[in-house]
Amino acid sequence: MDIFLVEAIVNGILLGGILALLALGLNLIFGVIDVVWIAYAELVMCGMYAIYWLYAVHGVPLPIAAPIAIVFVAILGVLVHKLIISPILGSAPINQLLATGGLLFFLQSFATLLFGADFRNIGLRLPIVEVGELFVSFARLLAFGVALLGMLGLWLFLKRTYVGTAIRAIAQDREIMVLMGVDPSRVYLITSALGGGLAGLASALLVLQYDVHPFIGLSFGPITFMICVLGGLGSMVGGFIAAFIMSQIISVGGFYTSIELSYVLAFLLFIVMIFVRPQGLFGVKS
């Protein structure tokens, strides 16, 4: 097989890890609060800028800057819920989606205001790992590994703890949570913090590989929504698998055509899927 094709497949798998992490965060919020955070990828952008600012501008070492960024984005997540979503929790779902769309504009332009529209990078060059004839970027390997660990951590949290179980339960029957002694608004806040934290983790991984600019969210925000829906909203396993399907389409498709056309292919697949199997690949038909 063509070595470059193998490389494309490997890179697709590595990209899939991060996309899965992002989709998981979005899926969590979607499943629990029943809201689409259109600005989810913009939270990632905020985290990337936070790390850039701490590390490249103020010289804070990365192992310290990254956790700070994760906490920062988690707090942003809580603020998004408190300030934007919870006042309109009772109104039409589409209004909630649009309100976070306003947030998207706000975050993009606020980032432009603070940092300008230039591409910035943290100026850290990680080595290339050579496996046989294959060249793989260490940053991507690291990102993949950490993303998997992050997801494992989340899975354990959701599986083992009371709050985690409540987070899974609330998506299945919102109303009776009260009978269990669960305060839904608290679960929403915790979920928002978790979703934000996952975006923060993703930002720490992405900043190793990509330049940050105010509009970077647009390059992986839409694909994240598509992955969530493709996997079946609320189905975390589905989102995980869908992330790898989409990342292969992008990576291998990009190898044969161009990166834009591979995204076109991914989006077309999404549209067709909605028509053929609206509950997603692994979703439960309601």
Binding site: Y162, T165, A166, R168, A169, Q172, I176, L179, M180
Partner: peptide
């Protein structure tokens, strides 16, 4: 006060033990 609601209202995609765990949430 514990309430066994009409139509049972279990969490259908949680396991039996997880459902019981939700009962001990407080």
């Amino acid at each position: 006060i514990a309430h066994v609601p009409e139509n049972r209202r279990l969490f259908p995609r949680l396991t039996v033990e997880e459902n019981l765990k939700m009962g001990a949430f407080s």
